[in-house]
């Protein structure tokens, strides 16, 4: 699937660029996109290293296990395939918590650890497991309750009430997350 999208983006972009005469812009992007990716990568690289360091303290001290045990009654409904006490539950809890607190940068390393850990439970290593899809859908649905970046940009742009969007954002996030959970259950029943 990602294969097809990746391919179509490139082919459609280049053909459309040739037709419309935008090919010089496309050419420029091909030259500069690697540098842009590196900038994005360098932006999150130190955060990933830092947060995995901090999280390992929480793993070694048993704090992460405590948190995931506490959240287990809720998590086992979402992730029925994960056995109780499995390390992935700890990473999933940290990822969700970081997302809710609006710490998007810290959420990524926890999410990557969660996926790695879910992969160890996965029988078919090339195919997404049920828990992975649920976890991904939770992540793409937003989860953020405090949109800090948007609030900052709104106040920089002289909004009279920069925080006025917090309530609609929370409601939209809740609606998205609930529909993600429902759609996940639905799709899982229909598409095996």
């Amino acid at each position: 699937m990602i294969n097809i999208i990746w391919f179509s983006f490139i082919v459609v972009g280049i053909i459309y660029g040739i037709i419309t005469g935008n090919i010089s812009l496309v050419n420029e992007e091909i030259v500069t996109s690697a540098k842009k990716s590196l900038d994005i990568f360098l932006g999150i690289f130190p955060t990933i290293v830092l947060w995995l360091g901090i999280m390992t303290i929480a793993t070694d001290s048993g704090l992460l296990k405590k948190i995931s045990d506490f959240l287990y009654p809720f998590l086992c409904k979402l992730f029925p395939e994960i056995p109780k006490g499995h390390e992935s539950l700890g990473y999933i809890s940290s990822n969700i918590t970081a997302n809710i607190l609006g710490l998007g940068n810290a959420a990524t390393p926890f999410g990557l650890k969660a996926m790695k850990s879910l992969q160890s439970l996965n029988k078919d290593k090339g195919k997404a497991s049920r828990s992975m899809i649920t976890f991904i859908l939770l992540n793409t649905s937003g989860l953020t309750l405090l949109p800090t970046t948007v609030i900052t940009l709104r106040s920089i742009n002289k909004s009279v009430d920069a925080t006025s969007i917090i309530i609609p954002t929370i409601i939209v996030t809740l609606v998205s997350t609930i529909s993600a959970i429902i759609l996940d259950k639905l799709f899982n029943k229909v598409i095996k």
């Binding site: 990602i2 195919k127 997404a128 899809i133 998205s176 529909s179």
Partner: peptide
């Protein structure tokens, strides 16, 4: 989706993309 699945080498992502875009 591409970051999380790509990092652990998952190719078949099943319904995750449709469902995510629908959300």
């Amino acid at each position: 989706i591409s970051l999380y699945f790509g990092t652990i080498g998952i190719r078949k992502i099943k319904y995750s993309l449709y469902a995510a875009l629908l959300v």
